[in-house]
Design a protein around this nucleic acid. Structure first.
Lengths: 142, 142, 142, 142
DNA sequence: TTTT
DNA sequence: TTTT
């Protein structure tokens, strides 16, 4: 009972998010994310890249489709989920995805330039988690 | 711009949560949490304990006051916040606290026994984060 | 360049670790880990379990094979890695695994009882990370 | 027994690292790190910054003093530690610090330009954690 | 005291 | 398929 299933990634989008609208009006977005680590081996710099399938639902999917593009650097928090599906030849296959619960754009200023600050582009659902505590940090004498 | 401030703890409560109701009806709970690590030094087992000040707001505070008691093992996710206050001698002091955004009780089954499952003891706010994705894991062919 | 690929799990082992010794003397261990989350849906308690393939290398594999058994509750920290392999019919397949970098047994005291403290059962490699700072927390006046 | 005490931060250095060499030749480095979060309140963009005291020991301290400077964006992983000390008036005080166990520079290319890749500037101790698994990802048929 |  |  009661476990923890948490993934934390910082990496670059390999493609623009692909958005779908399911029956019932639910929005889903997905994109590949690359996390690379670099290390020295015998004095040579070696880079190793891992690719992750990121999936976002509903409000997060919509925010992602607006603000994330191929190449951008993002912090993503989510959980692992392995699903099965049938490929075109009706063979059962498995994929493991990271279902995002939260994300934050990192990186250069230019990455934020097309992110106008109006009351319309609502705070990403992820950020609203913070609102609760953010507006309540009064100075109580614990 | 845009940073990450995340704390992940697994430890035991040092005391029962202390609950307060602020003006305006906001609930705050707090308790000390011990995380200990054990390591071998010269063949001897050494245990080192660190104490953390945990603070919870609103709905989370209420769930905590119901289900958490001294001694229980919990997973807590939150963020660091340092605040200043004046002590009795009007000296300015600082405390660093972990503002919880999420928690899960770990440990023995008996720890859950007094946690009846009715529609009344609402899902902790933290857990509702999961609901979004949990009820939408249909089998879309990405 | 420079990414983060981190997984944090708390769950129960589905089986005893399976240990292999590769050519060259490298030890690898692996086991399935279940993380379950419980939430209320329409007043009913619903439990959803996710299974993860955990892989451990070298020293960590050896410590795991000694101290971890089916049913135990563990905290695992690691990274995601997707590899391809050929199944018996020579079909290329993919699996995503969590390569553990660290683990800690959680749970009941009885779970630790068969963990004698001698200088022989070396500190898990994971725990040695902590040693560095643990033995140097003198009281320097920063 | 057996807890988890983990901090994950992404933020900018407020100052260059300050390095000290203790008696016995141990190196310690420290610097303030700012993590800011931005959220909408009544249609206005509000930024809230939290400052953290980062401390690094030994090898990590040396790598930090070489590659980190005021203003850089870093990912830091570590643990919380609260210590007491006496201020100039002999009053006992407490500080909570993040003892880094790992860090990665994020951000612009220009941030890496003064990071020549030679066999001399050794892999940060943190990164060596990855080496173990990185050079062993052979294709075993689990 | 950082960054956008 | 990203980035440096």
């Amino acid at each position: 009972m009661s476990g923890i299933n948490k993934v934390i990634l910082v990496g670059h989008l390999g493609k623009d998010p692909e958005v779908r609208h399911l029956d019932g009006g639910v929005t889903v977005a997905s994109f590949p994310l690359a996390t690379s680590e670099t290390y020295n081996k015998d004095g040579k710099r070696i880079e190793q890249t891992e690719w992750h399938n990121i999936v976002l639902w509903r409000g997060l999917a919509e925010v992602a489709s607006k603000y994330l593009q191929k190449g951008k650097l993002v912090y993503i928090e989510g959980k692992l989920r392995t699903r099965s599906f049938e490929d075109r030849e009706k063979v059962k296959k498995y994929v493991t995805e990271v279902v995002a619960e939260n994300f934050t754009i990192l990186g250069r200023k230019s990455d934020f330039e097309n992110t106008p600050v109006t009351s319309e582009n609502a705070t990403p659902k992820a950020e609203t988690d913070y609102l609760d505590s953010a507006d309540t940090n009064g100075d109580l004498p614990f």
